[in-house]
């Protein structure tokens, strides 16, 4: 499973990083990026899903490899 953050949509709410800090990071301006090229190991899939479902900007999506 992989996730992708759309930087144009991200407005820095920091929800993804709060819910899945192993999967996402935010910079000083709040803009999120997916760590590890977005690759989500199976044990973090639930957390990554939560991050997607709590982004008020709909800025994170799952991508198929």
């Amino acid at each position: 499973m992989r996730v992708k953050v759309n930087a144009d949509k991200c407005e820095g709410h920091n929800r993804c990083c709060a819910l899945a800090p192993e999967v996402f990071d935010v910079d000083d301006y709040g803009t999120a990026t997916a760590l590890n090229d977005g690759v989500v190991p199976p044990e973090l899939e639930e957390k990554a899903k939560l991050a997607v479902q709590n982004c008020p900007e709909y800025a994170i999506e799952f991508v198929k490899d």
Partner: peptide, 20 residues
């Protein structure tokens, strides 16, 4: 609640800068 895309801090370019 698991799925909560609430917009209490607003959304878009004027998202509350003090939300954290």
């Amino acid at each position: 609640r698991e799925k909560n895309r609430h917009i209490a801090f607003g959304i878009g370019p004027h998202r509350c800068a003090g939300s954290n």
